[in-house]
Write a protein that binds this DNA or RNA. Structure first.
Length: 486
RNA sequence: GGCGGGGUAGCCAAGUGGUAAGGCAGGGGACUGCAAAUCCUCUAUCACGGGUUCGAUUCCCGUCCCCGCCUCCA
């Protein structure tokens, strides 16, 4: 059993067979840098980050490209409203986007092409379409002649005869056909523009992805991803332009992520319910946030809701607790080697693999992790009464959980626990001293003093728990607020 | 109106032609000086009505309801 993906174009789940054996190419539509990224962008980022991580785990050499749209109407408008330049708006928000990506623990993409850096490639593609008479110039604009493509609409399953057309750049009456869309837009006063065979202007949105995916990954690359809301017109038009210009298939698989909702409402600036990615990471922590992102199938809608983030935090703590508990046994979790899976871990790894291979069923995969945690805790119980074999099993299972959670799901579980070590290096002696005093008090059955010390430590953010083999401590998570917060 | 996706326990959410994972919350028990953590345990006629079938939550038809896209959007 190997990876299967649901392909939006074929409308069914199909085997993943890459263009080049052993390699996987991934193009994901990135942001238009008009504003700071919000948690909706984060969902798409995380979904495809997990896909990329799973492909890598599965042995593929992955090339991950995510573009940046750094020139468009909204960026220009934003610049006009704030009295700055489109380039400054784009640069500032691109920086915010990359900062948010780091906070989310996204693996850096291999190529981050920008529209303004690919004017030549876009103009070249447009020229070839004009030569083929599949595009035409009108008042400095260039439009794609939709009806010249027999299979236009195959991705979004739209019939050209049912389409109304839009006035994206010039009035419908000025077009040969109202449904033709702009590939090159003639310059308007005060707007950024570049020279072209058709006069100064700037590229249309859809042409950039067609040109850049083609340039960086080549015809027939493997996976094209993006939000479900991009299916039409964006992706439909990408396919149209690319396949018309190149006479070659564009992408082998189309993967789309579902939209994010804010309670009953759609996340929308006008409602004022936009949550920034960096804010969300600071509030909830990377692990809980990503666990929440993965709490629904990637094609299903997902709702941003405080209660659900609290649940995700609790679920994440359950994973972290196992790691901490295992370490109190005097052993460290043993990282999982995918090429040499220990027998105790094998059934879980197999189930995890089946789940992920099944169109990236991360929700089921997470449940496998939870099952493994339960089994590991059973081993911990036995280990605490001196069963060395059980101790080893617990360490192996905990390591498996950490490796899968971090390498594949990107939760940052190991890092969350390492933070305790970092603090321990500086203040550990102090904490240990207090715990020693508390232990002495408990031995004297002076529970009032023992509880006072525990309360004191708790006030400082140090949680003390008594285990059969002694007391342990760890930091309460600052990124796990109470339910009523926010 | 067109296209598409859904309705599974208090909540979130997988999944299967042979009575349904996991998490969170809650009840009970074990453990603990008390906690915490952990383990065990309890809680679902799978929207409604038909049909196919030995048997459907899972397939088909219909009904009701929800959501997304059809204009910019991850």
């Amino acid at each position: 059993m190997a990876l299967q993906l649901y392909d939006s174009l074929r409308r069914e789940q199909v085997d993943f067979e890459p263009r080049d054996p052993g390699k996987a190419s991934l193009y994901v539509c990135g942001p238009t840098v008009q504003d700071k990224p919000h948690v909706g962008h984060g969902r798409a980022s995380v979904v495809f980050d997990v896909l990329r991580r799973w492909l890598t785990w599965s042995g593929y050499e992955v090339t991950h490209v995510t573009n940046v749209t750094d020139v468009d109407d909204k960026i220009i408008l934003k610049a006009q409203l704030t009295g700055t330049t489109p380039a400054m708006v784009a640069t500032e928000n691109l920086r915010a986007f990359n900062q948010a990506s780091d906070a989310l623990g996204l693996l850096p993409v291999h190529v981050q092409p920008m529209a303004t850096g690919h004017l030549f490639e876009m103009q070249d593609m447009i020229s070839r379409l004009i030569d083929k008479e599949m595009a035409y110039e009108r008042d400095g604009n260039v439009l794609f002649r939709v009806r010249t493509l027999e299979d236009y609409g195959k991705l979004s399953r739209r019939d050209v005869d049912d389409m109304r057309g839009s006035e994206d750049i010039i009035g419908a009456e000025s077009k040969d056909d109202p449904i033709d869309f702009a590939m090159w837009k003639a310059a308007k006063p005060g707007e950024p523009s570049w020279p072209s065979p058709w006069g100064d202007g700037r590229p249309g949105w859809h042409i950039e992805c067609a040109a850049m995916a083609g340039k960086h990954l080549g015809p027939g690359f493997d996976i094209h991803g993006g939000g479900l809301d991009l299916v039409f017109p964006h992706h439909e038009n990408e396919i149209a332009q690319f396949e018309a210009a190149e006479d070659a298939p564009f992408a082998r698989y189309w993967v789309h992520n579902g939209m994010l909702r804010m309670g009953e409402d759609k996340m929308s600036k006008s409602i004022g319910n936009v949550i920034g990615i960096v804010d969300a990471v600071e509030t909830w922590g990377r692990g809980p946030l990503r666990l929440w992102y993965l709490s629904a199938h990637h094609r299903s809608p997902l709702t941003y809701d405080t209660d659900r983030l609290v649940e995700a935090s609790a679920a994440f703590d359950r994973l972290a607790t196992l790691v901490r508990t295992v370490r109190t046994l005097g052993v460290d979790p043993v990282p999982l080697d995918r090429d040499d899976v220990p027998a105790v871990a094998a059934p879980h790894v197999d189930r995890f693999t089946v789940a992920m291979d099944d169109d990236l069923n991360a929700t089921a995969a997470v449940s496998v992790l939870h099952d493994a945690v339960t089994v590991a805790h059973e081993h911990v119980r036995a280990a605490e009464t001196g069963d060395d074999e059980a101790r080893t099993a617990a360490a192996v299972l905990a390591g498996m959980v950490v490796t899968l959670a971090d390498d594949v799901l990107g939760l940052g579980l190991g890092a969350a626990v390492e933070r305790d070590d970092a603090v321990g290096d500086r203040f550990g002696a102090l904490v240990e001293h207090l715990i020693g005093e508390r232990t002495a008090a408990r031995d004297d059955r002076d529970f009032a003093r023992a509880d006072a010390i525990r309360d004191q430590l708790a006030a400082a953010g140090v949680v003390v728990e008594d285990r059969p083999n002694g007391s342990r401590w760890y930091l309460s998570d600052p990124a796990a607020p109470v339910a009523e917060d926010t």
